[in-house]
Design a binder for these strands. Sequence first.
DNA 1: ATGAAAGCGCTAACAA
DNA 2: TTGTTAGCGCTTTCAT
Lengths: 327, 327
Amino acid sequence: MATIQEVAKKAGVSAATVSRVLNNRNSVKEKTRMRVDQAIRELNYEPSVLGRNLRNSESRLLLVLIPSISNPFYTEIINGIEDTAIGKGYNILLCETDSNPKREAIYFNMVRNRLADGIILMDPTVNRKNLHDLACKHPIIQCSEFDENGTISYVTIDNELAAYQAVKHLIKIGKKKVALINSDEKFLYARERRSGYEKAMKEFGLPIESKWIRSVEQLGFESGQQAMRSLLNEADMPNAVFAVSDVLAIGALKEINSIGLKVPEDIAIIGFDKISFSNMTHPTLTTIAQPMYKMGCISATMIIDKIRGNDVESLILDHELIIREST
Amino acid sequence: MATIQEVAKKAGVSAATVSRVLNNRNSVKEKTRMRVDQAIRELNYEPSVLGRNLRNSESRLLLVLIPSISNPFYTEIINGIEDTAIGKGYNILLCETDSNPKREAIYFNMVRNRLADGIILMDPTVNRKNLHDLACKHPIIQCSEFDENGTISYVTIDNELAAYQAVKHLIKIGKKKVALINSDEKFLYARERRSGYEKAMKEFGLPIESKWIRSVEQLGFESGQQAMRSLLNEADMPNAVFAVSDVLAIGALKEINSIGLKVPEDIAIIGFDKISFSNMTHPTLTTIAQPMYKMGCISATMIIDKIRGNDVESLILDHELIIREST
DNA sequence: ATGAAAGCGCTAACAA
DNA sequence: TTGTTAGCGCTTTCAT
């Protein structure tokens, strides 16, 4: 790569003038500008982000931290983020953290080092102190997950209400023995959705039985299958399942199908997220739709606003119950 | 963030000595090292990647370019890349390009600017010149896709052979009317798999009928459904389908199920990739397994080798036919 | 309108 | 063993 010096030399001006041309300062004579532009083209010059950042502290790069890329839930959000960010002149770097504080720290430091201008965080809060230390000095917003007691702006949905409505729907179609397949409760959404589940059960005078509640560590189909297998082994089997993620619900569905029970007649099932695969199963899956693309767009808008020094308000978006064949 | 100067001041040494401590140079007295470490901790100091890169031209960051994160095919590869790279002290930045040359160019420039040390490219070759210009001066390797006429090292599988075996398997179970649901032929793998399909058909004296060949633009379930719907509308319907991706095969399967035909009795179907979903469908999907995790590990090893200045050889890995219920 | 010079944070060469 | 100095590529005063 050519440097600004070489361009300057070729154009017969100083580096300062080249810099002015690059940054569209208007104090450059048209003729000089032309010569510089010419030299830039001839040398195929690209300004070094490194040198520029070191001076300016701006990279126009955004970090998006997700626990795992294999969860289809994140893909739509990321599409929203990308479309919006690119439209505003920012680029996206996706960072998979595995919810590992060490890996998270590395990416946090990229912002401290001005390698990136801000972070959209979708991880659960693993290290509050580290997170808030960063948030004090650098732009960060949370998407989907957030820290209940913190001051960091976020965009999310009302998980408790959504879960409540899901379970209520199962009860309304006549199912009284509703099981819950939950995620790891390190996730706020998992705690909130359990709470919604309990609220609905209580409201209809149904008992909250720990024998009908499972918590999984991994968010894969296999986890859903395993959880369901274990539920089916209970002497007193549930006749409905609320799974906090479509992926889990699909695994559960597979397990129910494979032992010959009918969905929804024997066991009804409802998922969460409305991932595209949820419409490919047999029967198709009832689920809660989150406005994922919109969440992504809003996250991007929020973080860029914050980078520009504006205040941003947290937002809670609407969800929707999508009734399909599995209930 | 504290700077190296502040640490030096606090420890009562020069910046150079701090730098030596940071980089584990052994020419530092134990006592001095302790004082410096102490100061680093007290100030919560983190070295600036920016300053370091500018000096060293090393970032220990790897760029992974993929067309789309929503394709589960890439997730296992990325897991392999991450595990290997992190083990060797490198971090990963995921870049979604949409196969858009402009977005690709932005990420290419990050390497030119030394913001990242190298690129693992999974995109199809959209701009050969740009790609080879970059490859001349910077470490890059290709994974899965590669440029047939280029000099860039790659790791992939024998797509033509795999497709040939898939189609042969369909023919062997008595299906003579084999349809092909292919991807956009801008992808090399799509061209190779079509070629394998044709080879198998020819070998068994079967006609290659364009009415049984579909090409989709998007790699979603819906594309598979649409392609299948269109195939089912043919007066002379196929009795087997080879889809070049599990995602497409799953969409096709859904479509066949939904009009009441039986798989595999009426129509057999085989996919490609062995994504985790492919085992959740009803019936489960016969598919070709690629060693995706291994491909990721090898890609990472190759690019790091290349960064270190070593020569690396291209590699073609083995695949495997996984026979399940859909055939 | 333009150039010279300083400095962002860091490391390597050289000196002591 | 440690410090001094120069310089990576860029932008921004301050002069001219």
